[in-house]
Design a protein around this nucleic acid. Structure first.
Lengths: 220, 220
DNA sequence: CGTTTAATTGAAAGCAGTCAAACTATGTGG
DNA sequence: CCACATAGTTTGACTGCTTTCAATTAAACG
């Protein structure tokens, strides 16, 4: 076990951790709660480009690039560790396994981005939403946050829509559709995937891209 | 200058370098020509998730992850260097600047993926196409392959469409639209951006996400 | 020069968006 | 603990961007 010099910060839902264009002096690791990265178009449309669970490093970018190319916001109230910019680089330079772990994390991050791009570009709205529900189910379980297919969706329909490039209205219709088809059950934001395999089929979901095995092989 | 054990391979247009699901024994660096990464949906729709110019490392993934989460194909006839799986890891372990360069390249890769995701999810078709034309213009110039805004598009309309999540038919209509509006000139696949600023405005293009400066700071 | 591959054009259909209003939760202060 | 305010969700009617299907033209290639 190795120690990183850091401070802990508690942030409220929707507060910004980093704004696009800034160059913060530290990188962040999620300790509890959920955090997401977003980008805006000039016209003001928002896209959530990734969601981060406890244990994940949200912004290596800030330690190794000069400009933040996206904003980071809290999806729920969250605790994050702030690691000084130089600290991560120093530790990585001294411990090659750390450097390797950072690279692996970043490659997995890229893999998920590719799947999200495929999703947004080439799957219809219901497959897209189903895909996200499946991904959240697997990642939450992998993070030790509940059993597979039974969880509280950590975001509003508007935020779901912004993960998917859809509108909130359409997400609402899709969710009630899934419910009517008996694919899911809902109580507020608590969701239960009633029939996993049919939902996986609808979603065209194959968890390979999550590289869950690779992630375990090199814990940070 | 440091040397990597490698072999050189020449590949024809459209041949596969890596197929999704494989676990090749080497990573690839583009020496000449263009190469792209693609993913397919279960229904067979294709999305090109990135395009790679000479000098770029296409698949660190294969050295550091256990399964290829996407396919790699030649966009044009190309020369690629094959670096054995262990070689990159060894060199990175011995030279921390190499490890850092690999990480920076991967972070930039992720930044471009985020922009493509924003593009596919939140911009309309004309902004999307214009955005790609601007990106190619800047990256080609940065790679020393011609002056800004005057180049040969290295792909067919179908491939353009697959970069954008559109159909070939629609890309055709959009391109002639741009031409009619005097934004671009065309002669076959040779393109000239006649009015850079209006195209940039239409595209909502801001090159920050390419991190061209960061890339220069750490040449591989 | 013939054959294959790529690009253009037109007409029609459909998925998801937009606008608007009603309804339901959630939360806060009196 | 209720009343009110705010935030989030549902539902309906209508619009429109992009796709689909199909046929033609142009370019590239051997």
């Amino acid at each position: 076990m190795l120690s990183l010099r850091h401070t802990v910060q508690t942030v409220e839902r929707r507060s910004y951790l980093v704004r696009e264009g800034e160059h913060p002096a530290e990188s962040r690791i999620v300790l509890s709660g959920f955090v997401f990265r977003q980008k805006l178009t000039g016209a003001g449309a928002r896209e959530i480009v990734s969601v981060h669970l406890p244990g994940e490093i949200v912004d290596l970018h800030n330690s190794f690039l000069t400009v933040a190319d996206h904003s980071i916001q809290a999806l729920t109230r969250a605790e994050v560790a702030l690691v000084p910019r130089a600290e991560l680089a120093d530790v990585a330079a001294r411990h090659i396994q750390v450097a390797r772990a950072l690279l692996v994390e970043t490659l997995i991050d890229g893999s998920i981005l590719k799947e999200w791009l495929l999703n947004a570009a080439r799957r219809n709205s219901s497959a897209r939403l189903a895909h996200l529900l499946c991904e959240l189910a697997m990642r939450l379980r992998a993070a030790g946050l509940g059993e597979l297919g039974r969880y509280r969706i950590p975001m509003t329909q508007e935020e779901l829509a912004d993960c998917l490039g859809l509108t909130q209205v359409h997400v609402s219709r899709l969710l009630s559709g899934f419910e009517k088809q008996g694919l899911i059950e809902r109580a507020g934001r608590d969701i239960g995937i009633s029939r996993w395999q049919p939902l996986v089929n609808l979603a065209d979901f194959d968890p390979t891209y999550l590289h869950l095995f690779d992630a375990e092989a090199y814990p940070a």
